[in-house]
């Protein structure tokens, strides 16, 4: 889902940065307030950020014959909400843009919108919906992680399709092409992320910090 440095036209790059900025600011405020109220959550926030660090560093092979990486944002969204994941996503993407030539500074806004905003917010709503429907918790967590991951890649494809409409098919024609690259590859990887998220949440459950966050099994 990393749009490479320089591969978004100036207008798109500026627009996505402007759209991402307020979310990032709200995310910072949310984390700041939460840690002031409950400083004991710091370690758990670090653990959740760690999960995103690991998963977004793993470029996994997919049955489609290409490689991509999960996002790891579902877990943190469930525990801390989407705003916190915007901040953590920004840290990961900034590190990868500066040190790994992966993504870029001009595309940081767009990449942050797909990985740190679109994915986590969809996850947030899926989780709420699942809880309201009283589905089994593991299933809800699984769907939250899988669909959030897939939506991040769907969103990257959409961003590229808007920036590069197909000469014949327009934006929708182009969207299918980018989806073939990004979303299809991502299906098995999103499932992997789903299994891992359920696994880690199982290991975390019962800890006092989770109860403090209102997460009950």
């Amino acid at each position: 889902m990393h749009i490479m440095e320089g591969y978004l036209p100036l207008g798109s790059a500026v627009a996505w940065s402007a759209l991402s900025a307020p979310f990032l600011w709200l995310g910072f405020r949310r984390i700041d307030r939460l840690l002031k109220e409950k400083p004991s959550l710091k370690l758990l926030l670090g653990a959740v950020a760690g999960f995103t660090f690991v998963l977004s560093a793993l470029k996994l092979p997919s049955v489609t014959g290409s490689c991509s990486h999960p996002t790891g944002t579902g877990l943190g969204t469930i525990l801390f909400g989407p705003g916190a994941m915007t901040v953590i996503g920004a840290i990961v993407l900034f590190f990868q843009a500066l040190l790994l030539a992966h993504g870029g500074l001009t595309t940081l806004g767009a990449n942050l919108f797909s990985m740190g905003i679109a994915g986590p917010w969809l996850s947030f709503w899926i989780y709420r919906l699942g809880k309201r429907l009283a589905l089994p918790l593991s299933l809800v967590v699984f769907l939250t992680a899988v669909l959030g991951d897939l939506f991040t890649y769907f969103f990257s494809s959409l961003q590229l399709a808007i920036a590069y409409p197909d000469p014949q098919g327009g934006i929708s024609g182009s969207l299918w092409k980018f989806l073939l690259v990004f979303a299809l590859t991502q299906v098995p990887l999103a499932l992997t992320e789903g299994f891992l998220t359920v696994l880690v949440l199982n290991l975390l459950s019962g800890q006092p910090e989770l109860e403090e966050l209102g997460f009950v099994k």
Partner: peptide, 16 residues
């Protein structure tokens, strides 16, 4: 990146 991340995660899991 992965090592730092798993360090943070596993520290908390071990502590828990």
């Amino acid at each position: 990146q992965a090592a730092v991340g798993s360090g943070f995660l596993c520290y908390y899991l071990g502590l828990g």
